[in-house]
């Protein structure tokens, strides 16, 4: 009798993803659903999706979800979590959402130590709107608004917001991972799981930045795009733990 060793997580709805071939978003959706299943928190989780390609994340994740304006997901999540600290609240945001239009909300939530789990998907472009330059776009990278490539002196430098957030006193756990190979995907899942646990233990602000490919807007095949993340993007945004101030909960310091 064959035993099934890999199946669809229960917290993932049966809908077919609307994402392009090779898109990292749907891998991350699946990992989130797996973590929610494994932690047994589906019935007390609330998600806040972003504007952008993942705006329809609620078509896939079978948990309560509430929309936020572009960039404001963490502010909305703050309102939810402060009113219902017993819920597990996460945001799901792209680089434009979190590191451009939502920079203020992100920095201040981290600084206040809001007890939230933030999933930050960095693919270096605005995907939904057609591949414009993002704050994370690499120097020289061609986008639809940097047709000759991003020039730092004209268009700004790539912004490593996660590193800035690690400086905020209220942030507890920040890790950068990728979803470009099975090895990295396993690491990403572990990081997401930890970011949820940090919140569930009431420790504070946890964020996982996930380097992800956007083959369509990069005009590469999915395999080329994944290679590019590992060989090029990850040199600008090195993978690994940027901050881990977590502690084992004790009676004195829960």
């Amino acid at each position: 009798m064959a035993q099934q060793v890999f199946k669809r997580p229960e917290s993932l709805k049966d809908n077919v993803f609307h994402y392009c071939p090779g898109c990292g978003h749907s891998i991350i959706h699946r990992l989130l659903a797996e973590v929610i299943d494994e932690l047994g928190i589906r019935e007390k989780t609330v998600g806040v999706p972003p504007a952008g390609c993942a705006v329809l994340a609620y078509n896939y994740l079978d948990v309560d979800m509430g929309e936020a304006p572009h960039g404001r997901a963490i502010a909305v999540a703050t309102g939810i979590k402060r009113c219902r600290p017993d819920l597990v609240v996460f945001t799901y945001q792209g680089d434009g959402d979190l590191a451009a239009i939502g920079t203020a909300e992100t920095v201040h939530a981290a600084n206040r130590g809001e007890c939230l789990t933030v999933i930050f998907v960095n693919n270096g472009v605005y995907g939904m709107t057609g591949g414009q330059m993002a704050p994370t776009t690499l120097p020289g990278q061609k986008t639809t608004t940097t047709p000759g490539g991003r020039m730092a002196l004209r268009d700004g430098h790539p912004l490593d917001l996660s590193r800035m957030l690690a400086l905020a006193a209220g942030s507890v756990y920040i890790e950068r991972t990728a979803v470009t190979s099975p090895k990295h995907i396993i690491k990403t899942k572990k990081a997401i799981r930890k970011a949820f646990k940090v919140q569930m233990d009431g420790q504070g602000f946890a964020l996982v930045e996930i380097l992800s490919a956007c083959p369509t807007n990069w005009k590469e095949t999915p395999i080329e795009a994944c290679k590019r993340v590992e060989q090029v993007v990850a040199t600008q945004y090195p993978l690994g733990i940027l901050k881990d101030a977590t502690h084992e909960p004790t009676a004195d310091n829960p």
């Binding site: 806040v48 936020a68 404001r72 502010a75 909305v76 309102g79 402060r82 203020a104 909300e105």
Partner: peptide, 19 residues
């Protein structure tokens, strides 16, 4: 919450209202 901006404040209210 003394928010970081009016934008953050109204969106926090939005989240609170959702609950």
């Amino acid at each position: 919450i003394q928010a970081e901006s009016e934008l953050a404040a109204i969106n926090m209210v939005m989240g609170a209202s959702m609950t």
